[in-house]
Amino acid sequence: MVNSDDIIIARDLVKKFGDFTANDHLTFSVKKGEVFGFLGANGAGKTTAIKVLCGLSYPTSGELTVSGYNIYTHREKIKQNIGYMSQKFSLYEDLSIVENIHFYAGIYGLSNKVIRERTEELIGMLDLQNVRNKLIKDLPLGWKQKISFSVAIFHRPSVVFLDEPTSGVDPITRRQFWQMIYDAAHSGITVFVTTHYMDEAEYCDRVSIMVDGKIVALDTPLNLMRLNDSVNMEGVFLKLARQ
């Protein structure tokens, strides 16, 4: 490792689908405990990048280290250390909240005792006592997203990747969701989050902006606003994306 503080190190990461280059030489690093925002318009290549980082998809070329492990040689080690919440909702609709938690925690290899304890803790925290045995499909979207996030960090990974976790969620739930993200970051989990809500970008410690498969800017939201003479991230984004 170059720097023990860096939990994700990507260098010249390229992902091509045939002739189309979805990720064009991405070079960036994410610090431990950071909330890292990954911004970009639809189709800019955010989801592709996140899938490569999670080990769901092979990079075409480039170097990548996640949580100290090389993506080419220790793919399964990485998987033990990361959490992932995909853009597509990914809990089982026909299982209850508790059953979903139980299943995912189980396949991560947590012991029954730990599963039981953390389940109770989580149920208490999210105030789900009355609906714990309800099927996921009967819950409102905002709840589903919160549970989905909790499941993704249930095994206490060192990094969690969130792919547009708040799309379609009302503003109040979004606030609560971001509170959960902060709590996770405080407990030491690095958060890598893609979004296209620019107000959310301002909540991040650092932000990268992706346009057409390339990273065109990477800095703290404040610096980006200053550099681009803008009062908010929306202005920064519009300016960079239109270049």
Partner: peptide, 11 residues
């Protein structure tokens, strides 16, 4: 339904 992806990121 997309759950396969969630399983594929597990070890």
């Amino acid at each position: 339904i997309g759950t396969i992806e969630q399983i594929n990121v597990t070890p």
